[in-house]
Design a protein around this nucleic acid. Structure first.
Lengths: 344, 344
DNA sequence: ATCCGGGATTGAAAGGTTTCAATTCGATGG
DNA sequence: CCATCGAATTGAAACCTTTCAATCCCGGAT
């Protein structure tokens, strides 16, 4: 096989292929885009020429003329959080089915990165953008959608529906967690999570409170232990704070706003000799794979992560295909997965 | 602020901006690319027009003409493995410094996805491609590089250096792990990992064997427990197999080929009532964040993940800027991080 | 009053592909 | 043998931006 032989750096174009194959530009393009309209003989001739020249279609030119790109983008909030990579996995499958490429961008929780990625994707004229935004109420998102780029918000909601939204009912999630703990006989429970600038945290706590009240338990016995972030380190720190409580105030169970916090708490408990679940039951949220893999497998509120991603991607493509499409707000129900950390 | 007003779907172009601002095409382009060559007055006029029309530069057209793209891509082996997301994080920082966008693609361990992503990136004429390939010896990679796309292989090596390569000395990593266990007084140790079609697994085991022999210990006392993948589930399964060994053959310590396996093993041990590290010491590999966050914090061989990514990205950009650049094979030394799972 | 220099602006070409109306060619039917 | 039809192929326009040589214009020097 002779490959890119020329010393000249220019990669070969349709024109080069056409010349080598002895056909016109248009025919080469047809081979590329509607092979059925080309006779078998010329088709193979052209394909041979392409192989010989190492021809690679220039997507910029294609897109410029065709007006349509073959990619969608997902701007994720934190690529190192398994939750989001699982969501992305779901999107990837849908993209694959539609012969699209999914480009992942990590905003790393920084507004400047998010903006840069969004701008770049928009300049690329991607078919659409999926985003888990730092601030779902930011005007940047509205502007983007107003300019005509299909946009779907993932794992966040936004009241005034200027675009599609896919999220999980966090209030229900909170209820499930607390109901489960009450079922297991706990009457003094802590909620660990923060900051409450995060809608998720507020709603999960809200759900917890509802369930608590519905069970007729006194407000005071649902202790809130705030954290500054939803991280393992904060979970550890919260564990130490809990351990410092006077025994009669100390909860027998904890509901953590996410699994990272729960894992941190579990670690602290283990190293302090607190037996989980005997001395302390723990419920997490998200049900990331590491929750099931923990030394004491973690009970957690599972979000349909991949499904979240798949649905978001489908909505996006629907919007991209149908200009006057009506925005949908899809809300999934989470589900409690009981494991050893609350079962004894 | 008046935004995209037109009912027509066409997004506005430089030409529209030029007309509205009452200047020529070239001037608009200058405002975009060399603002200093434009008088302040016209510049603001043009900028106002852009804002009014909601102008977004068409990157395809820009790239087609300018010939250069502003993005690089990383085709990662498994986006759900924290190791790779950390590597990506390192790349992201370098990209950011150079005002480039990093697009992440997940091949999800499937050759077909990898090929599709590589092809698509190449068609996009990205500045360069970073890849952790399924098979570093695949000819597809050589072809790609031969066609002129700068390419850097990450976390894998390849003998015949047709491109840059950034990896970690896995043999040394294996030695470090075993040396540490020997130091801690263990004379019967298991290596858990597989399949050995993975170069990493082979080399880590090789390092382990070297260290074992160098210490003058009998080959038979380094037991190999093969797994079919480097996953948590396989770690658990391996744990059960170990527990089934006759007591005098049972190792007092285990070196796992990666942290996922180690976490699985830790979980199995905990649930079987085996005390870590007292009854069984465990060493992992990679030092992912979850290793430190485990109930019993895991001793692990740390790879400089972010540094790996940064270096790879730098090499890539160096190659992209300098056509006759010589390929480098960078190998980093790993480092042992001792934690509770081997300290008593 | 004339010329000159230089900053600001212009206009047209170029870049690689797709699209589509137009053309060619061979075959079919009369 | 001609007219017709359809399949295969062609050629030029269009997509939007950047580039660069050419032009314009203004103030300052002669």
């Amino acid at each position: 096989m002779s490959d890119a032989r020329d010393g000249s750096s220019r990669s070969s174009s349709v024109k080069d292929v056409a010349v080598l194959a002895g056909v016109s530009l248009g025919t080469v393009s047809n081979v590329l885009n509607r092979p059925d309209r080309v006779s078998a003989a010329t088709r193979t001739r052209v394909e041979r020429a392409m192989a010989e020249l190492g021809f690679v279609r220039n997507e910029s030119a294609r897109q410029l003329r065709a007006g349509r790109s073959r990619t969608i983008g997902y701007v994720m909030l934190d690529a190192t959080n398994p939750f989001f990579t699982d969501v992305a996995q779901g999107m990837e499958h849908v993209a694959e089915d539609h012969d699209l490429s999914l480009f992942l961008c990590n905003s790393d929780n920084r507004a400047s990165r998010e903006a840069a990625h969004l701008a770049h994707l928009q300049e690329q004229r991607v078919q659409g953008i999926l985003v888990t935004p730092i601030d779902p109420d930011s005007s940047g998102l509205t502007d983007l959608a107003a300019r005509g780029t299909p946009l779907v918000i993932v794992d966040r909601t936004r009241p005034g529906a200027a675009f599609c939204t896919v999220s999980v009912d966090d209030v229900l999630g909170g209820r499930l967690a607390i109901d489960h703990l009450i079922d297991r006989g706990h009457h003094r429970v802590a909620f660990v999570g923060g900051p409450d600038s995060l809608g998720q945290v507020r709603e999960r706590l809200e759900g917890a409170r509802q369930a608590w009240r519905d069970a007729g338990l006194p407000d005071d016995d649902l202790v809130v232990v705030p954290t500054t972030a939803l991280s393992v380190a904060e979970g550890r720190a919260a564990g130490e704070r809990l351990a410092g409580l006077p025994a009669r105030r100390r909860p027998t169970a904890v509901f953590c706003a996410n699994d990272l916090v729960a894992l941190g708490l579990l670690q602290q408990a283990t190293s302090a000799g607190v037996q989980v679940p005997h001395d302390l039951a723990i419920v997490g949220f998200d049900d990331i794979d590491f929750a099931a893999a923990a030394a004491v497998p973690l009970t957690s509120v599972r979000q349909p992560r991949a499904e979240l991603g798949r649905t978001a991607a489908r909505l996006l493509l629907a919007e991209a295909d149908d200009p006057d499409h009506v925005h949908e707000q899809v809300v999934f129900d989470p589900e409690l997965v009981a494991r050893r950390s609350t079962l004894g």
